[in-house]
Write a protein that binds this DNA or RNA. Structure first.
Lengths: 95, 95
DNA sequence: TAAATATTTAAACGAATGTCTAAATATTTA
DNA sequence: TAAATATTTAGACATTCGTTTAAATATTTA
């Protein structure tokens, strides 16, 4: 849990997560989105992976990254206690 | 947003938040929960306040801290995008 | 008004973090 | 097999972070 919150703490890593909502991407494509060296992005990807927020799958010489449900679920569960405290309004329409 | 995620990143601060689910408390009572100096707790409370996760209200010589909806809402909204990504499609009802 | 209580502010310091460049590893292509 | 491509690992360095003790501020009580 500690590592998951830590992973979410950095703005670049949050941007990577949002970027991956659009679909899985290899490391190079992810790095292109940022004005930062590839090793830095690689390091961020590693932390996101450690926090179970992304999955890495090797495909030839590429590594494809995608969102990982389990990290998000962990944070979601933590927040549930507060959601109940505040009684966030439930959507009236089931989509 | 940056400061809100930062505030949530520290384990002591997360414990303070959980503690406050039980109800508002003054700084001294909060500090009692931790084996840490009062100035450290004071600093953590300051960061939580900056992140709009808690409210501070002066009551005589005490300062009463309570959970603040707005910080939690901000994080909640951020997570909504991912919740949608992971959610299984709901069956459509034929009318 | 002086002392006691509650809390914060200030200054210092080691540990953790994010970034870079250079080098290493793995895979594909010529 | 050698060169090119994709990505990571290693090492260095400045900045940020969490903690402490000491001092300051504010309020209440005797």
């Amino acid at each position: 849990m500690e590592i998951t919150f830590k992973a979410i703490n950095d703005p670049t890593r949050r941007e990577i997560l949002v970027f991956l909502i659009g679909g899985a991407q290899n490391a190079g494509e992810i790095a292109k989105q940022f004005s930062m060296s590839k090793p830095s992005i690689s390091h961020h990807l590693d932390l996101l992976k450690q926090g179970n927020l992304i999955l890495a799958e090797k495909k030839g010489q590429y590594i494809i990254y995608s969102l990982n449900r389990s990290g998000f679920e962990l944070v979601h569960v933590w927040f549930q206690g507060f959601a109940q405290y505040f009684e966030f309004p439930k959507p009236k329409i089931r989509l």
